[in-house]
Design a protein around this nucleic acid. Structure first.
Length: 305
DNA sequence: AACAGGACCAACCGCACTCTG
DNA sequence: TCAGAGTGCGGTTGGTCCTGT
């Protein structure tokens, strides 16, 4: 992900004449506008955005000012790559709430709904396209939960074993301590328990020690999105939980240093019925996927067996 | 070096809901 | 109760940057 650059954009600066001609400015914000907005809010606070825009001397709509403040200028906005924890959280919360970006964003401090939405559209939906699966389909949701999320959990553990004090990992920890598996999550595959704050397990297990890996059943077959919107986050992820009936070896390559879907085998996908297509021209298997989540070598190797 | 295509992300749009007078 | 203003949200678009050829 590229670092967001300050909105310095002189070519979009209007001349006075142009400003007279068009009452309201549109397009990228200038540094001057950002300064005006920031200083005004620092003095008078947020709210009444239309009035604020006028009083601050901004030739912008109130909506535009609000969006700029909330998505970019607000002091607590966190910029830069989403951490594996955050990605995991997004996947999990999206599986529960769907495209409720603002609601999801509430659980990722410093991240905006817009940023999360962009992440979903550019990264997650890309995977769905390459799998020839509708990103809003249950099949894709299942794939995410059974294959992608466990890998993110691994990555989180490998990358920052002591990060449990962060807000997101604390949250995830909390998730694992709560239980109540939705009845619709019947077992269909087997995956390891994840250590500490895995949202997928309530057992603490060293993932690096395969002998200690325990299994649990989790299967997202039914619509997770149907889970009550009123349910607080962790309640559907629980101790016994979520991923279907293939073995650990089938499910993913535990030695992979990458995270996400990379390293997940075609065989395992097929085993649980996630992928029914065949590698062919134009589909995801034929694309180069340098930064993608599925390991092509594994896929072809397993297909040849 | 130039170009094309894709990825990324800031910003806009339209709609729905809430608030206020 | 109602109309208009304000606000929030999700979907979409367009510009910029990156990468591969």
């Amino acid at each position: 992900m590229r670092a967001a650059m300050p909105p310095i954009n002189t070519k979009n600066m209007s001349t006075p004449l142009e400003e007279e001609e068009s009452e309201l400015r549109r397009g990228p914000w200038t540094l001057e506008e950002d300064t005006l907005l920031t200083h005004y809010i620092a003095r008078h606070g947020e709210g009444r955005w239309n009035m604020l825009a006028k009083c601050a001397g901004l030739k912008r709509t109130g909506k535009s000012c609000r969006l700029r403040w909330l998505n970019y200028l607000k002091p607590d906005i966190k910029r830069g790559n989403l951490t594996p924890q955050e990605q995991l959280l997004i996947l999990e919360l999206h599986s529960k709430w769907g495209n409720r970006w603002s609601k999801i964003a509430q659980h990722l401090p410093g991240r905006t709904d817009n940023e999360i939405k962009n992440y979903w559209r550019t990264r997650v939906q890309k995977q769905a396209r390459q799998l020839n699966i509708e990103s809003n389909s249950q099949r894709f949701l299942d794939a995410v939960r059974c294959f992608w999320m466990p890998r993110l959990v691994q990555k989180v553990e490998q990358a920052s074993p002591s990060s449990s004090s962060s807000s997101s990992s604390s949250y995830l920890k909390e998730m694992c301590t709560q239980s109540s598996v939705p009845s619709q999550l019947s077992s269909c595959c087997t995956v390891p328990s994840f250590p500490t704050f895995s949202p997928l397990a309530n057992k603490t297990t060293d993932i690096s020690n395969s002998s200690s890996v325990t299994t649990q059943n989790i299967c997202p077959t039914d619509s997770i999105n149907n889970i009550s919107d009123q349910t607080e986050i962790p309640q559907h992820l629980t101790g016994s939980n979520v991923y279907g009936h293939t073995t650990l070896d089938q499910c993913y390559n535990i030695d992979s240093n990458d995270y996400g879907m990379e390293g997940i085998s075609f065989a395992s996908m097929s085993a649980v019925g996630f992928y029914e297509g065949t590698p062919s021209e134009g589909n995801w298997m034929c694309n180069e996927m340098s930064d993608d989540l599925w390991n092509m070598d594994d896929i072809w190797q397993l297909r040849s067996i």
